[in-house]
Structures are given as structure tokens and as C-alpha cells.
Nucleic acid binder design. Structure first.
Lengths: 123, 123, 123, 123
DNA sequence: GTGGTCTAGACCACC
DNA sequence: GTGGTCTAGACCACT
């Protein structure tokens, strides 16, 4: 389900976080769906459970997961994830990236095409 | 010239790197123009010279600066900066950001408008 | 009768305990009234009976319930609930909360108004 | 500076968090003041550094601390701490505590007197 | 079974 | 020197 690159400079727990965000965004896992237990995922990824727990905690802080004690972790519903502060940060990153791409000669039309071609995520 | 936010989680040397990229992209400094010496910049930003040194080395590696021994550092010409590998990384970042923004309900039109409104740089 | 939020970080058994305290304080259930059996409540709340059992034991320990073997659990009379130790704990929690609220700019008058507006319970 | 009760049921890292909140609220430490390094505090409290780090990270998430890489952690300015969501949670806790206190016969006037006697924290 | 806490100790990046 | 990451393994609370 999730790919980890041990050689990457990105911390493992962040890779796990980003991996789950992706799965959620693409609809591969749905709201209120249960995610693997900390121990199970740790075992299947050959990673220390503490590292997974850190990732899960981060996902909880960022509003993607919620936890039921003794039962496991679950994906939040989409409205629980709304967060204007988060969008603001994304806008900043978006602008910086776009600026740099255009400076290096990236194709505007291709960029726009990508945006237009994406599903909005709302089904 | 360059703003440093000590409270940011972004390493200072990265802030310096990004700051120079921005100055170059906006045309605030031009190809073959001389940039401040490591010591001077360090003094004016109240930052350890080692940190500036690291930033300059990074800018050299990324093709933005070149150094003439005994003379200082200079901004590269634009063709020297072309780098398909860099563009590829930017595309990846662009797609990830766009995906996450759309998932969180960002406005497509506003994103496209931003891209269209930007100057393409010097042609 | 009692609302359980599985997503809350508060343990379920604590939510049950607090729920009963609330029912007792508001007068929704009265001294010597019988409360549902462990099994019944577990079934109606869709919760493991062990969890309810733990909640009832806690309510007994805190002086809110008493149990008659073979007959079920009942609400204690109010005098049985007096407990200076408990009040002391509440005072500590009260002070801590008030301090933090004031620090974060909460409105004193609104706080006082709330206290004044509350019924003192049965005298 | 901070008292830890190893016997308490409250996790150590939470005790550290609450301890610092208290120091900040009482003005014992001030905005932009540096707090002890993770290692130093761990050594002086005879606690594992990881536990302290967890506490510091929590304080950062809650908006009380900020961190400068390689320099240490610092207390945030008061306006950085404003957070309506936090105040809402505190109000809920306040009401619950007040209700239970009144039910158990606590003295309204003493409660009000406590609130009125407190400094607002704004100096 | 689940997640949560804590320890001991290693290694890295940043300043 | 600073904080950040990761591991290995123990113990506890909740369901």
C-alpha cells in the first residue's frame, strides 16, 4: 500500500504521512475506514512501530486520522479536514513552485492542463 | 535584500538559497552581477558565516552562482541554469501541491489565473 | 440517555461515568432510582459490557452508585455523595482552568455570569 | 523550576507541558526567553531526553514554544498563542467543573472571588 | 487485540 | 552545542 524509501533524505515517518495523505486524496481509502494497526504496518514495512506511531500521531494532528482507543485508527471525514490555515500554506508553496517553474521555462499550458484535468476530489 | 525568519522551521541556509533564487527570478539581481561576500552578508544578516558559506555552495551546486577565486561570487547567466533534472523535480512538487490543494477545495480558476498572470521571465 | 463519542480521546468508560454524573446532577435520575443493567446498557450503546462494568465500578467507588446483589445498581442519596476530597480535586481543576482561560483572554464577567446563573442543585 | 511526580498517573511529558504552561502564565518565563535545552532539562529532572522532547514538541504544537534549529527552544509571544479553538475547549471544561462543584455544594462566592482576584495576565 | 508512554542509546543535520 | 530521527524493547490502559 505504502512505499518507503530508506535511502531518501525525507524522514520515514514523513513518507508514511505523505503516503497516507495520497491514499486519502486519491480515494484509495475512504472516510471512517480503518487503517492498519501500528504494529501491523510496522511489521509489513519492516519499520519500528514507534516510527509508525509518530506518523499516525502526525496524521491525527493534521486532521486526517482519528483514533479510537483499543480499536485502531480511522480516516476522518472530509469536512473534518477543512482547515483554512492549511490551504494558505499550500497556496504559498504553489506560488513559489509556479514562479520557479516559469523562470526555468516550464510550459504554462501544460501546467494549466494538469490542473484542469484533475478531479476535484468531491464526488 | 534578503529576509531571514529565525523562527521558521526552514533551515537558515535554505532561506538564504531561496532568497537569492527569488532575487534572480524577479530580476532584482542580474547575470554576472556580483553578490555580497560571505562575510558581509553574514554580518548584515547577523548570521554565522558558515551558514552563508553553505548557502553559497548550494547555489553553486544548483547552477545559480559561479565563483571566481579571489573576486567573489557571481550570478550565472540563464542558459547556465537550464537543467531538465531541476524542472522534473519542480513538476513533481507542482503536481503534489496541486493535488492536495484541489482535495482541500482550492479554486481551480484562481490557480490558473495565477499561472496566466505571471510573467514568463525574460524570453 | 447517554451519548458516547467513539472518536473522542476520552475513554468510553469515562464518558459513561461523566454521563451518569450529569444525569444525576441535572436531576434526570433520582436517588435510589435503579439504573439499567450492565448488559442492557451495553446493548443499547453498542459497547462492550466490560466497559460498562468498569464505568459502574468507578461510579460506585466515587460514591454515586450502590449495588444490591441480584437486583442491580442504584443511585446514592446526596449525603452519601459528600466528599471533601472530591471537592478539593474539583477546586484544583477549577483554578487551573480559570488561570488558563484568563491568560488566553477569556471574559471574566461571562465566567462569573455562568456561575451565578447556575442552579445550586437541591438544597 | 518544574516539579515531576513519577508516581502520578499523569504522563511525565504532560506534567512537563503543564508545568511550562504554568510558568508562562504566571510570567515566570517571558516571551522570546530561551528554555532549557532538551538534554539539560532531561538531566536535571532525571528523565529521558525523548520524553522532554515529546513535551517540547507538544508545547510547539499548542503554540507555546517555537524552535530555532541548532539554537534551542523559545517561548512564543502572547499574540501567537491566541487560538479560539483552545478557548472553546477551556470553556467546556470550565462549565463541566463548575456544574459538578455546585452540585457538591461548593461556595459560589468563593469561586467568583477567585476569578475576580486573578490577574488578567496582560501587563 | 488496540494505541500510549517511557527508556536507552545511536546517528544525523544545523549552527 | 542544539534539536530531529530512528531503533529495540518494556510496560500500561482501554476494549
Amino acid at each position: 500500500m505504502i512505499q518507503i524509501d530508506l535511502k531518501s533524505r525525507k524522514p520515514i515517518y514523513e513518507q508514511v504521512v505523505d503516503g497516507f495523505k495520497r491514499l486519502i486524496q486519491t480515494g484509495a481509502i475512504n472516510p471512517d475506514e480503518r487503517v492498519p494497526s501500528v504494529r501491523d504496518l510496522a511489521k509489513s514495512l519492516l519499520i519500528n512501530p514507534n516510527t509508525i506511531q509518530k506518523a499516525y500521531r502526525e496524521l491525527e494532528n493534521q486532521g486526517y486520522f482519528y483514533t479510537v482507543l483499543g480499536q485502531g485508527s480511522f480516516v476522518c471525514t472530509r469536512d473534518a479536514m477543512r482547515d483554512s490555515e492549511k490551504l494558505e500554506r499550500l497556496w504559498k508553496a504553489f506560488k513559489e513552485t509556479v514562479d520557479e517553474m516559469l523562470f526555468h521555462g516550464a510550459d504554462k499550458d501544460r501546467m494549466i492542463a494538469y490542473i484542469e484535468g484533475m478531479e476535484c476530489g468531491i464526488k
